[in-house]
Design a protein around this nucleic acid. Sequence first.
DNA 1: ATTAAGTGTTACTTGAGGTAACGGTTACTT
DNA 2: AAGTAACCGTTACCTCAAGTAACACTTAAT
Lengths: 241, 241
Amino acid sequence: MARTVKGGSDARRERWKGHREARRAEFVDATIRAVAKHGPDVGMDEIAAEAGVSKPVLYRHFADKSDLYLAVGRRGTDMLMDRLGPAIEKDGPIRDRIRGIVDAYLCVIEENPNLYRFVVRGSFTDRPVEQDVVHEDKALIAANLARILGDYLRAFDMDSGGAEPWAHALVGMVQNAGDWWLDRQSMSRQSLSEYLATIIWHAIDGLLRSANITVDPDVPLPGSVFKTEPTLRLINSSEEA
Amino acid sequence: MARTVKGGSDARRERWKGHREARRAEFVDATIRAVAKHGPDVGMDEIAAEAGVSKPVLYRHFADKSDLYLAVGRRGTDMLMDRLGPAIEKDGPIRDRIRGIVDAYLCVIEENPNLYRFVVRGSFTDRPVEQDVVHEDKALIAANLARILGDYLRAFDMDSGGAEPWAHALVGMVQNAGDWWLDRQSMSRQSLSEYLATIIWHAIDGLLRSANITVDPDVPLPGSVFKTEPTLRLINSSEEA
DNA sequence: ATTAAGTGTTACTTGAGGTAACGGTTACTT
DNA sequence: AAGTAACCGTTACCTCAAGTAACACTTAAT
């Protein structure tokens, strides 16, 4: 009998590819609901119950709890990047663009405060830092920002060595201010965006001034200095294999 | 027989006051050593072993694991505040003072990277946010910064509404840049301090310029606008009772 | 018909956090 | 001197949530 050879592609093996992804997404949804219902320290039983199945089913799709939470995190990543990408790539006066990016971020956390808090606080100590979604996201955003800033600086023949620290500084700045704002909403989102954009703009402007360059914050930059790569996707090295 | 009345001060009760504190400190030390030895996910048994005692002893001094870790966190807080306080209160040209504060922070995390990482990553999901040491510290520092900035702005008759978001933004900025730097030490501490101080100074300068005020970054501010309260201690509401 | 995937269940194991119950030591109180 | 309030410390246990074993059923490609 012609047995199916070990590495051969049996259609039975392929048939589920899409299904599995859909199922995982379904469980991620359930987890988010369960977190909203029971708070951030839900148990796997409760999550399974919320999904209408029992625990072992969950474990067929996720290696362990932390794997599930990672998937929840990536869901958050997607929501964030979907908004941040366009905001970063948008044309327009620099001052507006800064505010736009900041505001896009604040929008996302404002619209999903529970998910956001869960993902940010719920990092696992038993996983390496590299598998922390928040860390990944921040690194990714910072990397993009660093490239943009670097291009910017080089376009003006300035030292671009500060681009990376600057980028991480900006990311941390917006995130922390956002956290604070989310906890005690003592001002409108617009006001905060405006304040943050002001800081950032002044920092940039100051840097340029120190090199005797003046830029009008309300006039679009010439050229494509600020153009990013069309793809601002998370390069997820653990996705393959 | 005149039994010791229930609320009365029996010297037997007081005799240990200092001792208990010393013992807790000792266990905190042991925990830090244990973390350094076994990584951030040490068990209570290992910590107890490191301290040379068995588990129940630990639990006589700490309500639970998270209480112990809280104490470890406060140890970190103390180290940080001991450096940050003087740096904030120091006189001198504003630009230098900013760099001094930033550098003080970076020094602390540079000197205690393991402790720092443990405290920052090891936040507990089962405790309310208010008991997160990192959150506490950031809030405290931001509050001080906000007051300073507010005074500063008011001294120049400017809108001080942005002081709080600014403060949180600055805290997040320095922290995140510091984290990044600690992970991949791709530049000297001095360079990073310089870069961050530059950003901050430019942001402040820009803000003042927008109100038609110019300040020389290298000249000490007149008066005591920048004077902080002599006490930059953590107000620990859970200490009493 | 066979078989590779998936569906699902109940009942178990495991491990780390935390506790009970015991006995000894010190030095203040009466 | 007896009593006792605090500590010292141990071994052996409890508990609870994460994760697994073993079982039975469904579907559709071979």
